[in-house]
Nucleic acid binder design. Structure first.
Lengths: 344, 344
DNA sequence: GCTTGAACCTAAAACGATTTAGCATTTTCG
DNA sequence: CGAAAATGCTAAATCGTTTTAGGTTCAAGC
């Protein structure tokens, strides 16, 4: 990493240190000293200085300099947290790629990157506010802190928010409350009298909403609250342990709505360990956030966000926003997808 | 996307078009026209021109301008294909971020992102050759074309290649051939006499290597080649169909090495459908590239790349390379991780 | 002694955006 | 009416790098 403590090191620093011009330094850095006939001794001195001073090239400057005025470059970002799973992000990525490829040509290029922030600290992301990183972004998996930040800020470029409802932004999300409602409907129609909802202790906004809506729907139909089974985390292991405890305590349970497929997988294990059948004794409904939910044993019935549709909408919005200048706020609701499989 | 066909549009184009200075245009673009007291009529004219001309800001220029000379900025990239899963790269990202955070201070900042290229077209990635995008990169999921490109090019910044063996580069990968060898060992020791290897039709370099080494190891031990069961794709569905066909044809099979956990999941289904037991009738070994391999039913025994170790090594190499100036070539082999579970 | 050419190096102009300092006007107000 | 303040805008500097078009010196050739 070298010293560089005192001053930032630029080509100019090096040039002064050696006693040559910046042109000479640049020539050496680009390894063009042969064709430009710099004296070997000079080259060596410059190289030594570069090493000694710990020079780090400024990529922004290089990029600007290397820029070809004939093509304009669109920098697209997919912003998510370090903590969240990448299931949705990878779908977004592919859809962005598809749209970008279709629009690429001479004179127009796209770069797509995934940038991660620490949950709740979106505001600290360098270049977000100064608009010096992206021409357009899709933001997802935000925490309330991040939402507050976004709501309070009008970013001067195209922004699409995925899965959250924010004033002054273009938002694409599944119809609020609908997932929990439909999940309850499926379990109740399958004659579950004591459906429970399996959630992690720390709820995200979406999981909280699913659980709320589920409980509300059961209350509306059955007239009483369904039990909440709280897992320590969102891993299968945590889900298994929580449900095992619930069943072990002899509490009623003939239906499980897991707000995450990972938890559903844990539920499967707990149910099987208890010697019960799925869905014979206990029906299970997941949300379809696991790649291979159709390969669980038995295949998992899911009521969850219709990811294809959401992603398609979001990406379409992004490109539309980049086309016109004004970032109009809008809310787009996508109804959940219901996939009946064997588990309920 | 607007016209912009004829000329590249910059703030200057807009300024000339409206008849104001670039300062005025910039002010409007940054939404600072209130505090800088531009006349509303002017603001509207500028906005109209911005829209009409299809202006796209140049992020490199913005970044350069926004640059604070007191801090030097390191741009780190994790390069992967659009097509590859994000499982490994997200681990890399997390590890890079961890190291970067530890080195961040006043005067030193890092940006880390996952950047996408089209498989086989790494060379087309803008800024790679001109060194105008990254101060250091970790490259993964390359195709042979990409490897050829890398082998022929000496990029003038820190490069670590993950999972491939390239001359003149710093490479980190799992010990060649070891995965297939260990997988064969496990199946044979479990008294499998007719182990098969389940692969997708289109092999990646790693999957091809695993299959080769497996076949070679079985041949070495048993004196004859093990069957290859070829699936149409790498999805569970494809794996299930392929193995079903193999079993249906009455061919011998009492052990499966699936070069991908997705295929293993498919194998599970085919085996269960055939009324056989795992591992009683057919043992299965996967590679551990699935997040929840320990929650398959039965939990999947895996011999696969030791991702933690590989990632840790690769990231450590990246930072070391960035510290010293000269990029030395090196090869680092990481032995596979073996996780015995219930399936073999 | 003068020209020519090689060898080695530099000044300055880009690249595209933002901001600071300041210049004209016009309005306000004592 | 004249000074002060507000209004609306611009010129020019700046960020760090690369490259083009030369400029100087020195040695060789006539």
């Amino acid at each position: 990493m070298a010293r560089g403590e005192k001053r930032p090191v630029t080509v100019r620093t090096i040039a002064e240190h050696v006693g040559v011009s910046t042109a000479a330094v640049s020539t050496v850095l680009a390894n063009r000293h042969e064709e430009r006939r710099l004296a070997p001794a000079t080259v060596e001195k410059i190289r030594a200085a570069v090493r000694e001073l710990g020079y780090v090239p400024n990529v922004a400057a290089r990029r600007l300099r290397a820029h070809d005025p004939e093509v304009n470059h669109h920098e697209l970002g997919i912003l998510t947290t370090f903590e969240a799973p990448l299931f949705l992000v990878s779908r977004v990525l592919r859809q962005v790629q598809r749209m970008a490829d279709a629009r690429t040509g001479p004179g127009r290029r796209f770069s797509v990157s995934i940038d991660m922030f620490h949950a709740g600290r979106l505001r600290e992301m360098p270049g977000l506010l100064s608009a010096s990183r992206f021409n357009g972004v899709i933001v997802t998996n935000t925490l309330p802190e991040d939402d507050a930040f976004l709501a309070a800020t009008a970013l001067p470029y195209a922004v699409v928010v995925l899965g959250r409802r924010l004033p002054n932004h273009c938002c694409v999300l599944d119809t609020p409350g609908e997932i929990g409602r439909r999940a309850a409907e499926i379990l109740l129609k399958a004659d579950s009298r004591h459906p429970v909802v399996l959630t992690p202790a720390l709820l995200t906004q979406s999981t909280a909403e699913r659980a709320e809506a589920f409980v509300a729907a059961v209350r509306g139909q059955e007239g009483r609250d369904s039990a909440r089974v709280i897992a320590a985390g969102f891993t299968p292991a945590a889900g298994a342990e929580a449900l095992r405890a619930h069943l072990g305590a002899g509490l009623d349970c003939d239906g499980v709505f897991a707000v995450t497929d990972g938890l559903a997988l844990g539920a499967y294990q707990a149910i099987k360990d208890a010697g019960k059948g799925i869905p014979r004794d206990i029906a299970v409904v997941g949300v379809g956030d696991h790649e291979h939910a159709d390969f669980f044993d038995p295949p998992l019935t899911c009521v969850g966000p219709s990811n294809e549709a959401i992603v398609e909408q979001a990406v379409a919005q992004l490109f539309q926003l980049m086309g016109q200048r004004r970032g109009k706020a809008s809310e787009i609701f996508v109804p959940p997808s219901v996939v009946r499989r064997a588990s309920a």
